[in-house]
Amino acid sequence: MTPMQKALVQTSFARVVPIKETAADLFYSRLFEMDPSLRSLFKGSIKEQGTKLMAMIAIAVNGLDRLEALLPAVQALGRRHAGYGVTERHYDTVAGALLWTLEKGLGPAFTEEVRTAWAACYGLLADTMKQAASETSTATGD
């Protein structure tokens, strides 16, 4: 990610924070619309999951300037997600749902530059998670 992309993600996310509950609802509605089988991966309350999602996105967005400190937590998240049954194809679905949610939540402020910045951010984090999950399954012989 470029410094400009980091800044775009951070400033656009600041505009999402006031509508974070709505954004989480939009995200999960879209995610389950895109792939209804994903609903079975969530055992608890989707409202609570939405709160966790928005908190994790905030941590990631705020940590973009300190990636070396952020990446171990992202790797751990990837390993946990693999344990829940998340597969590589699910990351693409999540990317689509996230970008759609941001577009709906930000409206005209969701420019092509902002979309590209979020795609780069998500790609970096998702690739880190997938790599950690892959290393875990290789180590366990899966």
Rank of each mutant, 00 (worst) to 15 (best):
M34W: 06
A132G: 07
M1W: 11
A95V: 09
L64W: 03
L71W: 03
M4S: 15
L124Y: 10
K6M: 15
I57M: 12
T128Y: 01
H81N: 07
G123W: 05
T101A: 06
M4H: 13
R115M: 09
A23C: 11
A55T: 13
A24I: 07
A117P: 07
A126Y: 13
T128F: 01
A7H: 08
V114R: 05
K47M: 09
A97W: 01
G44A: 14
L99A: 14
R80D: 06
R66N: 11
A58P: 07
L64N: 01
V74T: 05
S29N: 13
K6F: 14
L67V: 09
P36D: 10
Y91A: 01
Q5T: 05
A82N: 00
A133V: 07
F27Y: 10
L98S: 08
F32Q: 04
L67A: 10
L124W: 07
S37C: 10
F110V: 00
S134R: 02
T22Q: 06
V16D: 04
T51Q: 13
K47P: 10
A60H: 04
Y91H: 03
D65M: 00
Y28S: 13
G83C: 03
L70R: 00
A73E: 03
T116L: 09
A69P: 05
V16Y: 04
I19E: 02
K20T: 03
D92N: 13
Q5F: 04
D25R: 08
P108E: 12
A109K: 11
D25G: 10
T11G: 00
E88W: 12
M129S: 04
T2D: 07
V9D: 02
A73V: 05
L99N: 12
A120Q: 11
A82W: 01
T93F: 13
R115A: 12
F42H: 12
A58E: 07
A133Q: 11
P108C: 06
D142R: 15
R66G: 09
A14Q: 09
T2P: 06
G105W: 04
L71D: 02
Y84K: 08
R30L: 09
F42R: 04
M54V: 12
V94Q: 02
R66L: 04
T136P: 00
G44H: 14
G96D: 05
Q49K: 07
Q5H: 14
K43R: 15
